[in-house]
Design a protein around this nucleic acid. Sequence first.
DNA 1: AGAGTCATGTAAGCTGTTACATGATTCG
DNA 2: CGAATCATGTAACAGCTTACATGACTCT
Lengths: 189, 189
Amino acid sequence: MALRHAVLAALLDGEYSGYQLAKAFDAGVANFWHALPQQLYAELTKLEADGLVAGRQVIQETRPNKRLFQVTEEGLAELERFAATTAKPSFIRDDLLVKVQAVDRIEAAPVIGQLAARARTAAAKVGILEQLAARLRGGRDEAEFLAHGTRLGPYLTCLRGLAFERETRDWCERSADILRARYGEGQQP
Amino acid sequence: MALRHAVLAALLDGEYSGYQLAKAFDAGVANFWHALPQQLYAELTKLEADGLVAGRQVIQETRPNKRLFQVTEEGLAELERFAATTAKPSFIRDDLLVKVQAVDRIEAAPVIGQLAARARTAAAKVGILEQLAARLRGGRDEAEFLAHGTRLGPYLTCLRGLAFERETRDWCERSADILRARYGEGQQP
DNA sequence: AGAGTCATGTAAGCTGTTACATGATTCG
DNA sequence: CGAATCATGTAACAGCTTACATGACTCT
């Protein structure tokens, strides 16, 4: 039951359609949660039925019609309650780590290739998040923003995403180097 | 279908019972995957039925009997195949991040408390993983180990876990400080 | 005496993924 | 002219979590 709270948190920034949320919750800017479009459409329907979000139809001429959602007072109260419950620890679940764990007992080349690929996507995400951070700061320097800026929450989760992606990039590059030194090249897919 | 490969990777280090695996896949040393005991017992049964692991009964007098499992040649071949398929990107899914995303629109105190608690558990895990890394290195210095040591895979995933937990600890502490500066103390649960 | 460890499961329910479906518009 | 974008879903299946069940031994 945490996707619903992630959706509520995302809608604090303004009105969004399911489609727009789907983009945000997919690769790219999903700093604090990930979900597929199907999940989001289903969850928005449920949230609306429960009165936690309110949707309004927007008729478009050149594009398909869409529904924009915003959080209701009841939705905010639900978020409040959720934030007060103790968070369960978050766990690692990553295919690539499983492969690395086994790398000295199997063919290393494909694992090296995947580490290189993951390093590239992490590096790209670092760039995207740096831009997002700058946009959220909006000209202020960081200390100033942290003390007085609005929307501190999204900035903090953005910092977390940045640190995570930098760390991913560095570890993948270093691990790939170490494995190449032992086992040779490994193709770049 | 990735838990099965995580189990196979874990069993590369030797023979383990479901109970021992459950401890490793739970908090503490779960560097590369997480799973509950129930999942592991079920998965081991399936893996045995598929011939990817072999179990043997160990009769104990003072303790309940147990079954120890090891990877078969077919199991290793399955891991090999898995490692060669392209890994799907890994995604963030963390309750605490959702709460931080919303923190400037709700009561901050409980979020601050949870950040402090998470920082403490991350710090504890850093200690555990530092010990594990030292044990895996077994006296050698790091460069030496990376060039010539055995079981390089577990060492690399351990390094990843270490970097991740350090990063978690630092971000949680910093975020809690920033939020305290704005919103006051926030109890420590 | 009570809490924790060793040891293995079953059953029900919730969450997440994969596959399928539709159709106009805009960009290269 | 083909691919991508906008826009919203349904259905089936796989995977994970929660609750329950049992029982002896060891440590404080």
